[in-house]
Design a protein around this nucleic acid. Structure first.
Length: 565
DNA sequence: ACATTATAAATA
DNA sequence: ATTTATAATGTG
């Protein structure tokens, strides 16, 4: 039981690489591969399955090449641009079995968002039975068992982002499902990006790394388009057949739901269908405007607009800052002029649900937002109209609907972040997936003000490459990833010298420093300063920052985030 | 992302 | 020794 190495080669080298790239002491990195300390009996390892035989993968362009690469025991990275309608468990199972048929090897499968359960993970367990699960949904005992079992040569391991660190022997295949997902970035030290770690691990283990997504991240798509990694894609006709009807509707400034969309909803409801609406904000209203002094209320700390949680006069009348999370209780008078005549502009999910109850009196209306996720899940299932913010669009919460309305596409596309358009495209594509193909009555309505925007165009066409090309042109112009790598350094210290030194070290290592800018973290967190470093190789910056990180230990409030999202 | 807990640092 | 601030960790 004891004596099994926790990081057998070449995993030890991977952990060292991780410690280096993400600027943490080696011990911190190695701590991640130590199984939970519980006494367990380790099950006999079982080799990889040899079935199912490939049937879905060969229908993709490049699919047989990928299977050949896995079977041939070669090493390399592949992007599998999968069809939203395809069962990804089945797809992954075919790849895993291909590795199994070459004898002796093992495979690891990573999936995002394990905590609400994962259909893909359940699917794999259904197909293979013997899956060593190392996800956080398992008990410590189970995880420990699975890790040790993998260390002894068990064939298939699966779980969240941490599986890329699992001690699998003779790794042949490493699959990242939903490769574009944010949860592959670890949010605490070591702040590793599981995608990068997976690629590095595959290289060290001479394994095949498969990055699978129906909307690959821009970095992965760019590498595939450049020919640096393999590209497996569905053919054009299949892709087109999977699209819903996508309609763009001009946003009506006076109301959240335009007349046109209202008509669509009425038609769908009359036909016995269900509707989901995506509100741009939670709670009640997005902006609070004082009629006496003709100003909107701003956060005293960070100057961002404030929004209201509950209905005015209701039980919850907390005012919340969207940027820094500051919450002020019970708004009664305007802090500026003492006026009491407020106007509530822009509906949040809760007010929308209220309004819809009035305009569709016979429909059952349910809403979900970050504050009521748990108790509204059941209600949502029977609702005719389901109003939610982006949180309720997670696959596990989705009721079956035939119409999805995105009320404010601009809010998503226009966010001040270089990944805003990428994330908007992914979100819209996911909504397309939700309503399903046009042949089955699927319809997506996007309300916004820019029908010509390339994100809207790409979603309408269901064309990932159209999006990718235009996005890459912009990224190149501004030298953002994949044309550069990023390091984000945050400091909460009163003494600005720490951040200054970090900036100097970064410049000396060849980086370009942007900022500093002020950031606000959480209602209790204090103001901090942040810089962003663009460089050609984050390893160089990481090396340059290592001594600074070591010499300014606890209390410095210094956070170095390599490959931020 | 948030609250709780553990730990280190500062002060008396 | 006691208090206080901050980092680590667990949980929705």
């Amino acid at each position: 039981m004891l004596g099994d190495p926790v990081a057998p080669p070449p995993l030890n080298d991977l952990i060292r690489w991780m410690a280096r790239r993400y600027v943490v002491p080696a011990g911190k990195a190695f701590a991640r591969v130590v199984p939970p300390r519980v006494r367990v009996k380790v099950d006999e390892p079982v080799p990889l399955p040899v079935e199912p035989a490939p049937s879905l993968i060969p229908t993709y362009t490049g699919g047989t090449d990928l299977l050949a690469a896995i079977a041939g025991g070669s090493s390399g990275v592949w992007c599998v641009e999968c069809l939203p309608g395809h069962d990804r468990s089945a797809l992954i199972a075919e790849l895993v079995a291909a590795a199994g048929r070459t004898s002796g090897g093992t495979a690891l499968v990573a999936v995002p968002e394990v905590r609400y359960g994962s259909q893909v993970l359940d699917g794999l367990v259904g197909i293979f039975g013997e899956v060593a699960r190392v996800d956080s949904a398992q008990t410590d005992g189970m995880r420990s068992k699975s890790m040790m079992r993998l260390g002894r040569g068990h064939g298939l391991g699966a779980g969240g982002r941490a599986v890329v660190l699992a001690p699998a022997k003779d790794l042949r295949l490493l699959v990242m499902d939903e490769e574009h997902h944010r949860s592959y970035k670890e949010d605490r030290a070591p702040r590793y990006d599981a995608r990068r770690v997976a690629i590095e691990r595959a290289a060290l283990s001479k394994a095949v790394c498969v990055l699978m997504s129906s909307t690959p991240s821009v970095e992965t798509g760019a590498a595939a388009a450049r020919g640096d990694i393999g590209w497996v894609t569905p053919d054009r006709a299949t892709r087109r057949a999977a699209r819903p009807v996508v309609e763009f509707m001009e946003k009506d400034e006076a109301r959240a739901v335009s007349h046109e969309l209202h008509v669509r909803m009425r038609d769908v409801l009359a036909a016995g269908g269900r509707v989901a609406l995506l509100a741009p904000a939670r709670g009640y209203s997005r902006t609070i405007w004082c009629a006496t002094c003709a100003r909107s209320l701003r956060c005293p700390r960070c100057e961002a607009g404030l929004s209201l949680d509950g209905p005015p006069g209701g039980r919850t009348t907390d005012v919340r800052c969207r940027r820094c999370g500051l919450v002020a209780e019970g708004l009664h008078t305007c802090p500026n002029c003492g006026g009491t005549d407020f106007r509530w502009i822009g509906s949040g999910s809760q007010r929308l649900a209220e309004q819809l109850t009035r305009s569709f009196p016979r429909a059952r209306v349910a809403y979900m937002d970050p504050s009521n996720v748990e108790d509204s899940a059941a209600e949502a299932r029977d609702a005719d109209i389901y109003v939610t913010t982006w949180i309720g669009t997670k696959a596990v919460f989705r009721p079956t609907v035939s119409l999805v309305g995105i009320l404010d596409a601009d809010a998503l596309i226009r966010r001040p972040h270089f990944r805003a358009t990428e994330q908007a495209y992914q979100a819209f594509a996911e909504m397309s997936d939700w309503v399903g193909p046009a042949a089955d009555g699927g319809r997506l309505v996007i309300q916004g003000s820019e029908p010509g925007h390339y994100v809207i165009q790409a979603v309408t066409r269901g064309d990932y490459r159209f999006f990718l090309e235009r996005e890459l042109a912009l990224r190149e112009e501004l030298n953002y990833p994949p044309f550069s790598e990023l390091v984000r350094i945050t400091s909460r210290v009163a003494d600005p010298g720490v951040l200054e030194r970090a900036a100097q070290a970064s410049r000396a290592a060849g980086g370009t420093v942007l900022g500093p800018i002020a950031v606000y973290q959480g209602p209790t967190g204090r103001d901090a300063q942040q810089i962003l470093v663009k460089c050609s190789d984050a390893l160089l910056i990481a090396d340059a920052l290592r001594s600074l990180a070591r010499d300014t230990p606890s209390g410095s409030g210094l956070a170095i985030d390599v490959d931020p999202r």
